[in-house]
Design a protein around this nucleic acid. Structure first.
Lengths: 213, 213
DNA sequence: CCGCTAATGGAACTAGAGACCCGTTATGAG
DNA sequence: CTCATAACGGGTCTCTAGTTCCATTAGCGG
């Protein structure tokens, strides 16, 4: 992105008050609308500028590319933290997590955004980084419930909590992106159950020794 | 794609011999090269035509869009069937499958192609269909090894074989597309072990009753 | 409240992806 | 072998995403 050197991608810190923040909010909102209504393929910065009632130049100056805009959208979303519920059992906690993911990936607005981000992340490094940061945060938020299951001796003590959380999400994203099967609550519950089964069998232990043999 | 009505996307069946086949092969090969070298973002049909030493018009006439080209590339690849090994145990078979997927998603040329296809599939319906056909074929090829495990009473009789196979792939694709963690053989083995653990626990049974409680 | 200047916005400009015209090549049926 | 025509290809045109220029607006330090 040679844009980064030519312009300031982010207004940085010099004068981020009032108007700048307003413009950013309007543009992100408009981008979200376009994504939800017409999808990633029609996401054109000039069009976003028009909808946001903002100068085309401004959008190109501050974001420059579709990938940057989409990455910023994700960063914005990452700030809204979702509270984690506690049910007292690993299966209960992971099911809650799986259903949360499933609801997210079923909501038309959100699914459009996530598909766009994931697509952009396959070819744009900056977007890929933003995506990983986002999921790092999410995974860290949920990892404690696996630790609690370890403390309750539900699962082996050297289980990697983050790996278990990721195991819950994986089949759901697989459905969304690859197989295209319906993402219903049953799928979510199955994902959670599978993660629990794996954890109990010692699949997600930190050392190389895999259980289940 | 109103192109479909204006041109013939596929030459169909009238005269597919010699030259037409040669052109198709050259274009697909060139597209693969561009993907591997410069990635999806730089995949320009005119450039592909130049590399393939083929008229730009021909490429636009027969494929029309980047998504179509990429979908055709995948369809071409789907025809090369990979032989399935049989090890005598479910874990052995699924590990072989997982390692095959892992090798595919590690090979630079193939990974570029798969990322491009998956990205295109998030916004192009035809590509999404091609993608699902591809994995339908692959899943069907491997499902029998799960059926054999059922016959050996390794896992519950009402296990859905296709769901087990998909469970093996899901974490690997998750790493590739989302978390960005390294896709090594250990990850593949873990994916296989997790699928076995889930299958044994009855997670992938056809009815609604999930095991593992 | 004033003024400096960061940030925005309109408008004209440019480049290149993709569409189209029409002449040329060579496949495959008879 | 011959010929009708399916399929290819060069050249040109169009349209629009992205860039640049410069005038205008409005944060924010004083």
């Amino acid at each position: 992105m040679e844009l980064e050197t030519r312009y300031e991608a982010e207004p940085g810190s010099v004068r981020p008050g009032g108007r700048t923040a307003r413009v950013r909010a309007a543009v992100l909102r408009a981008a979200e609308d376009v994504l939800a209504e017409q999808g990633f393929a029609h996401l054109d910065l000039a069009d976003v500028a028009r909808r946001a009632a903002v100068g085309k130049t401004t959008v190109y100056r501050r974001w420059g590319t579709v990938a940057n805009l989409v990455a910023d959208l994700l960063a914005d979303m990452a700030e809204q933290s979702v509270p984690r519920t506690e049910t007292g059992s690993l299966l209960g906690d992971l099911t809650a997590n799986a259903r949360l993911v499933q609801r997210t990936l079923t909501d038309p607005r959100q699914v459009a955004l996530f598909k766009a981000v994931i697509a952009a992340a396959t070819w744009d490094t900056r977007t890929a980084q933003a995506l990983r940061r986002f999921y790092d945060i999410r995974v860290n938020e949920w990892a404690p419930c696996v630790q609690q299951a370890i403390d309750r001796t539900e699962i082996p003590p050297d289980t990697d909590p983050r790996e278990v959380i990721r195991a819950v999400s994986a089949p759901l994203y697989y459905r969304l992106l690859i197989s295209g099967e319906v993402l219903d609550q049953a799928a979510a519950d199955r994902a959670a159950a599978a993660a629990v089964a794996g954890a109990r069998a010692g699949v997600y232990r930190r050392d190389g020794d895999r259980g289940s043999a």
